[in-house]
């Protein structure tokens, strides 16, 4: 899988200070976040992220994105394009439906993204959504695998249509989109298996 990578001007901001250990720590945080939906984990602490990327968003990109994963980058984050291409080597695609990772600051129409197939549900896209804050904002109740009891979750900036869009996504299971939420140096995840109710 590769679209020819775009050419870039090497940015001055480096990637991880310790590429192996930092990527492993961030990967562990992503695993934990997906295993315990809604729980907030630190990510990207100490990373000199290029504006307008939050450190958590930048850390996720360095950890998860590589030449095998085409990404769609929202225009709002375009200033970080060269940094992303240079450090991650990711091919940029114009169609969000062709992306393995959709990197954005607003919830995209989930039904327009790759949801995988019943044979290959792992081909479903992940959305890396950078928000204003995690833990504050409209509250939701989460239930599903990884949660022994219903759990409360709040985030600022998911948008009014989020719960309805998420139910449609949840109904596709095992197909569907996974949502990785970043704010500052914090990370939380809503895997496609979790059910969300507005409170």
């Amino acid at each position: 899988m590769s679209v020819a990578p775009a050419t870039v001007v090497p940015p001055d901001r480096p990637g991880f200070a310790d590429p192996v250990a930092d990527a492993q720590a961030t990967f562990r945080a992503v695993l934990d976040a997906l295993a315990r939906p809604g729980r907030i984990h630190p990510a990207g602490v100490g990373l000199d992220a290029p504006a307008p990327l939050a450190p958590a968003t930048a850390a996720l990109l360095l950890t998860l994105v590589d030449p095998d994963t085409p990404i769609w980058l929202a225009p709002a984050l375009a200033a970080a394009r060269d940094w992303i291409v240079f450090h991650c080597g990711a091919p940029l695609v114009a169609d969000p439906g062709a992306a393995a990772f959709v990197v954005t600051t607003e919830l995209p129409p989930l039904d327009r993204l790759a949801a995988g197939s019943d044979e290959a549900p792992e081909a479903g896209a992940s959305v890396i959504l950078q928000l204003a804050a995690l833990g504050t904002g409209p509250r939701m109740r989460l239930t599903g695998p990884g949660l022994a009891a219903p759990s409360l979750f709040a985030a600022t900036g998911l948008g009014a249509g989020f719960v309805a869009a998420w139910w449609a996504n949840r109904a596709l299971f095992p197909r569907g989109i996974d949502l990785l939420l970043c704010a500052g140096t914090e990370l939380a995840a809503l895997p496609r298996s979790v059910s969300v109710e507005a409170l």
């Binding site: 090497p10 940015p11 001055d12 480096p14 990637g15 590429p19 240079f86 450090h87």
Partner: peptide, 8 residues
């Protein structure tokens, strides 16, 4: 000089 990426 400043390493921008790598050596990796």
């Amino acid at each position: 000089w400043r390493l921008l990426r790598g050596p990796e």
